[in-house]
Nucleic acid binder design. Structure first.
Lengths: 103, 103
DNA sequence: CGTCGTTATATCGGCTTCCGATACAAAAGT
DNA sequence: ACTTTTGTATCGGAAGCCGATATAACGACG
């Protein structure tokens, strides 16, 4: 009977998905996250490339047609990915609301 | 140079700490969390008792002087625990703000 | 032209955490 | 008497994070 319906995103995955509303390559994602969080979160390479693979497997991001530039591989979020982030945002709002109600 | 200063709480730990602003025993924590989240989060026994032990080790909760009632063991949050939850709430607010800015 | 820092992707191993399953047992309800 | 609820606890598998490590192309500077 353990329901626990929704998916819970980790901080890294959440920010990676947010970064990919515009096409971006791996290294660019790292920089964007650092910028978005004013340097508070620096996603390590191990986390990033591992997460990219699982996100591709789940269809939450896809490889973006890169300008045959070689080295860089660009990715973008999918519609499914957008739905997942939106739901995660809802969950986060609930966490904040519950925290504010008590503290 | 990977800083990543702050502590990140898992959903389970966050809610356990919120539950313990008033003394409560393990089973009561499970029920309170279920109630707080309208049944969306049901913390399993494995998660709960594992988390209680690590929280005790870290000094974020302490065992509360139970009325020698036997079976039940009550716990409460410590000042350190309160500080941790407060910081987590800040982090969650940042996640929400960043999500809202993009979606 | 050589060297150094940055950009860039990728894998591995260790650690922590979550959670379902399982076990045990007292209390309460029917 | 029996069943459900209350209550605590452990185990093992799976997932995720991250530091370390490896590899290599690119640009800048002397």
């Amino acid at each position: 009977m353990g329901e626990n319906t929704g998916i819970v995103l980790t901080e890294a995955v959440y920010y990676i998905l947010l970064s990919l509303t515009k096409p971006l390559h791996g290294y660019g994602i790292m920089q964007k996250i650092e910028e978005m969080t004013d340097g508070r979160l620096i996603v390590s390479a191990g986390t990033l490339y591992g997460a990219i693979n699982t996100l591709l497997d789940r269809g939450w991001i896809v490889q973006h047609a890169t300008a045959e530039d070689s080295r860089r591989k660009e990715y973008v979020i999918t519609d499914e990915g957008r739905t997942v982030v939106a739901k995660e945002l809802e969950r986060l709002r609930e966490l904040v609301a519950n925290g504010e109600a008590i503290l």
